[in-house]
Nucleic acid binder design. Structure first.
Length: 218
DNA sequence: CACCAGGCAAGTA
DNA sequence: TACTTGCATGGT
């Protein structure tokens, strides 16, 4: 069944699962932790994000109300290791403010809202784009929405499985039209794409001959 | 030393 | 509309 899979998106998935196994991404201890992580990881290595989140934890600041009470400048100091700390502090503040305005300051209310409405509200926040919004919806809220990132585009276009010029929305539609609507599957798949991209599909020096996906396009 | 990282918005022509 | 640039720390 796995071998003779005719759907290329599932074929890739099974290859990656067989090669890497479960990734267990973002087992964040709280909703707010994953929301913060989603913003901090914008164009940034996750290890730097972990340092920033640890700073907030150590200071006892990793809760909605504590973060709301912090000044933008002090928040920026805590998250400094994640890079772009001034702009990310502003973006986090914008996001917290939206949750305050629309959901009484309860991230769980955001998660309980409909996918369409919560996504619109997230995208309306300055500093929250499609990947950040969808990461929050998938990883923190457990909603069935596929997260696209630069790795997804790079891996799939290099294998000729999507058009080079596909934008975020087009790519997302192709994945979601080709896969069962299943949040744990979307979660695992996205993490697996990041894993294979990091190891074999780096921007400059790709190691395609060793990639577990070689020949998957046929 | 150069290069990269789980983006996004603003500026330019 | 279609590029380009700023944002910034830390690991390889």
């Amino acid at each position: 069944m796995r071998q003779e899979q005719t759907n290329p998106f599932l074929r890739v998935y099974y290859r990656l699962v067989d090669h890497y196994g479960p990734q267990g991404w973002w087992p964040g201890e709280s909703g707010i932790e994953m929301i913060v992580g989603a913003v901090l990881t914008q164009n940034t290595n996750w290890s730097n994000v972990e340092k920033a989140i640890q700073n907030l934890k150590d200071a006892g600041m990793l809760s909605f109300s504590s973060l709301q009470d912090l000044s933008v400048d002090l928040l920026a100091e805590y998250i400094r290791p994640s890079g772009y700390y001034n702009i990310k502090a502003r973006r986090l503040k914008n996001l917290l403010q939206m949750i305050d305005d629309e959901y009484e300051g309860e991230p769980t209310f955001l998660f309980e809202d409909s996918l369409e409405t919560s996504r619109e509200n997230l995208l309306a926040v300055k500093g929250v784009g499609p990947e950040t919004a969808d990461s929050i919806l998938l990883y923190a809220a457990g909603k069935p929405i596929f997260v696209i990132d630069t790795y997804t585009h790079r891996v799939f276009s290099r294998h000729g499985l999507v058009a080079e010029e596909s934008d975020y929305h087009t790519l997302q539609q192709e994945f979601m039209d080709s896969l069962p609507e299943d949040a744990p599957l979307f979660n695992e798949y996205h993490a697996l794409i990041v894993a294979v991209a990091k190891e074999f599909c780096a921007k400059k020096k790709a190691r395609c001959s060793e990639c577990p996906l070689q020949g998957v396009e046929e």
